[in-house]
Design a protein around this nucleic acid. Structure first.
Lengths: 196, 196
DNA sequence: TGAGTAAACCTAGTGCCTCTAGGTTACAGC
DNA sequence: GCTGTAACCTAGAGGCACTAGGTTTACTCA
């Protein structure tokens, strides 16, 4: 009988699609094999195991996501860039929930080190923040704040955590505006005392 | 032979402990049964299924967490209250990672409606924000911002998402300080124009 | 063109998991 | 002590990840 033509890349792409349909944690090798009309044991020739497949999906999604964000941010600065970054982030997370979930898994530190997508993400994020005139360690603190809020918001929104009738997109815009304010009036260590 | 004395509550508590040890997603009914020296089929007399058990753990953890937060916030206001809330939140999430993960699962909307813990959480959160003089819908937006940042930060920290050498606790304190600034200079709709 | 070979894919099987149906046994209250 | 109701059991179906080892396809190159 004809071969299915499996490769690691085709499996990864199909797994990503499957994740968007049924949820990342419901992606199984069996279901993936079924989708290709193949026995599950056959997949192990292309992918080490489920963990390996998940990691591949994570890198695929991470790359796609930063491409979108980079395109959105290009040519913008300050509040404009922040809003573009934020919206591109959230749109990806909502549009491709399975892929987005993949980007949040714990990944082997060795693999993280030589990931072009992750380096690019860091570059673009730090670059976007340049307009606010922060220096280390505030810069890293600010990056962590943004990542946390963006991720937390998308995670809560995707899991139905926002029950109130208030429009979810409007709250998002307010949150981004609030982050912009926080970045502009970034609390310095010496300012902390007089605030209290 | 002697009975194990199973009840839904004992199972829930043991499942919560197990979750903190091996991770919430690795809690299985089989492992739980093993811990009680009992066959897994026996658990179904006390708990409907795995989903039911997970939900019970979620409510247990949610209650514990808001108790801690309420105690921390009691008698404080403004920035003090915010910091106390934030620290109690993060400490719980780091100390009891399995339980914390449980609080993030999607829960049947009917059960959500009559959960005392959730009502209490909402009360305390909104109460804490009263000092900032916000009104609806800004109040809800602010609550969503706080929840997002708190959850996102803890999720990223717990999953090893913060690679930079910068101290994770220091970044947290900066994030909370930045949120305080954002709440104090909350961007109103009419202010938005002149900001741009 | 046909033999050799590497890979793609398969069968068979283990062990862990959830969950159901239906049987036995300990224990509380009479 | 009897009895009924749990509490707990055995047995079993079906899904999943993963391994070992066999067969087949399709490509290369003489």
């Amino acid at each position: 009988m004809a071969r299915a033509g499996l490769t690691a890349d085709r499996l990864t792409a199909a797994a990503a699609d499957l994740a968007d349909e049924v949820g990342f944690e419901n992606v199984t090798l069996s279901a993936l094999a079924r989708r290709f009309g193949v026995k599950d044991a056959s997949l192990y020739a292309h992918v080490r195991n489920l963990r390996d497949l998940r990691t591949r999906v994570a890198f695929l999604a991470g790359g796609e996501m930063i491409d979108r964000i980079a395109a959105a941010v290009a040519g913008r600065a300050g509040k404009d860039a922040l809003a573009a970054f934020a919206d591109a982030y959230r749109e990806y997370a909502l549009e491709r929930p399975g892929r987005y979930a993949a980007t949040q898994i714990r990944i082997d530190q060795n693999l993280v080190a030589d990931s072009a997508a992750l380096r690019r993400t860091a570059e673009i994020t730090y670059g976007m923040l340049r307009a606010y005139g922060l220096e280390e360690p505030d810069l890293t603190d600010a990056v962590r704040l943004l990542r946390s809020t963006f991720h937390g918001y998308c995670a809560l929104e995707a899991s139905g955590g926002f029950g109130a009738p208030r429009d979810v997109r409007a709250s998002w815009e307010q949150a981004v505006a609030a982050l912009h304010v926080a970045l502009e009036h970034w609390p310095r260590r010496d300012q902390k005392e007089k605030d209290a």
